[in-house]
Amino acid sequence: MSLFWSVIRQLAEIEAMATSKKVITREEWEKKLNDVKIQKEDMNKLVMNFLVTEGYVDAAEKFRMESGTEPDIDLATITDRMAVKKAVQSGNVEDAIEKVNDLNPEILDTNPQLFFHLQQQRLIELIRNGKVEEALEFAQEELAPRGEENQSFLEELERTVALLAFEDVKNSPVGDLLDISQRLKTASEVNAAILTSQSHEKDPKLPSLLRMLLWAQNQLDEKAVYPRITDLFTATLEDPSV
């Protein structure tokens, strides 16, 4: 071991003693890691769950063939779900609403907030396309009555209609509504609602596990100094440091 590293190691140990943390060397930690057995089958399921939930239908199909892992949902339903998502993402909200109702009319019936957000997105698209009169008519006839039922809907409606009041909309306080991120937000909301209606989780498990890893490391930091992983992309084990 080089002098540099042994100095670093000593510093780490002194620090740890001061706070009475247990020091676990790289060698000890790697031994513990080697005792952990992760089943290949379970990792395959995790990857499949990600592909399916995120809507990578073709990749899921290929993965089924290449790995022999069965998806936990009928792959055909992914295609329908992605068509809805895509419609919202490209601004065809009317089309998306129709598709959702074809899939399962209960989704919008039982989810007034989602329905309002879709209608709001429709209004945004009308304004984006400069169809001012149509937009106003739509706002008054379709959205205003819903705003009466719900205070937060009303506020959102007012914010959206305000788009019409600015010359330079992009730099106005409500400019974010015209942003692509607004479409993505609505798209992901409808995506989640469809998954829920299919009694499937709306979020893939993998990101949640990655968060759990960072959380578990934070928890362990209070009691021990050990090799951590901070770069999720390279999964590199770092030497225990001060």
Partner: peptide
């Protein structure tokens, strides 16, 4: 990398439990 991360996650749970008088849950994928 996925396996490396999952092993790290499992080991952290086990180590935390070990330092806590064996109290608490392990992680099970």
């Amino acid at each position: 990398y996925l396996e490396t991360l999952l092993r790290q996650l499992t080991a952290c749970f086990l180590q935390k439990r070990l330092l806590n008088g064996n109290q608490g849950e392990a992680f099970h994928l």
